[in-house]
Amino acid sequence: EQLARLKREFNENRYLTERRRQQLSSELGLNEAQIKIWFQNERA
């Protein structure tokens, strides 16, 4: 579920704002660094 949600977010926007990253962190139970790194890896 977390992965599917991250992929949906990535398809909508390849870059997250700090606020959006905080929201996802709270909703998915991941820390902000994990989300940031995931997005960086997807863009690579």
Rank of each mutant, 00 (worst) to 15 (best):
L16E: 05
Y15C: 14
N11R: 12
A44M: 13
I35E: 00
Q23I: 13
N41A: 10
N13K: 06
E1W: 15
E42M: 14
L3A: 04
W38E: 00
R19Y: 10
A33D: 15
L28N: 01
R21G: 11
E1T: 07
E1M: 09
L28Y: 02
E32F: 04
L16A: 02
R5D: 00
K36V: 15
F39M: 09
L16R: 04
R21W: 13
Q23N: 08
I37S: 12
N13Y: 07
N41V: 07
Q40H: 09
N41E: 07
S25E: 05
K7H: 10
N41S: 07
Q22I: 10
E27Y: 04
L6Y: 01
I37T: 10
L16Q: 03
K36P: 01
K7C: 12
L16F: 04
R5L: 06
Y15T: 11
L6A: 02
K7M: 10
Q34H: 09
E42V: 06
A33T: 14
E32R: 04
T17E: 03
S25W: 04
N41M: 13
R14N: 09
S26Q: 15
N31K: 08
N41F: 08
Y15M: 08
Q34T: 14
E27M: 08
L3P: 00
I35R: 00
W38S: 01
L24M: 03
I37N: 10
L24E: 01
L6N: 01
E42D: 03
Q34Y: 15
E27P: 01
T17M: 06
R14V: 04
R8E: 11
Y15E: 11
L3H: 07
R8H: 11
R20F: 06
R21K: 11
W38P: 01
R20W: 05
E9W: 05
F10W: 07
W38A: 03
Q40G: 04
R43N: 13
A33K: 10
E32S: 08
A44P: 03
L24V: 00
L24A: 01
L24D: 03
K7S: 05
S26V: 15
A44G: 05
N13A: 02
Q34N: 05
F39S: 00
L3F: 06
Q40S: 08
N13P: 02
E32H: 03
L28C: 05
A44Q: 12
L30Q: 00
K36F: 12
G29H: 04
A4E: 12
E32V: 11
Q22R: 14
N13Q: 03
R20S: 05
Q34W: 15
R5Q: 06
R43E: 09
R43G: 06
Q23R: 11
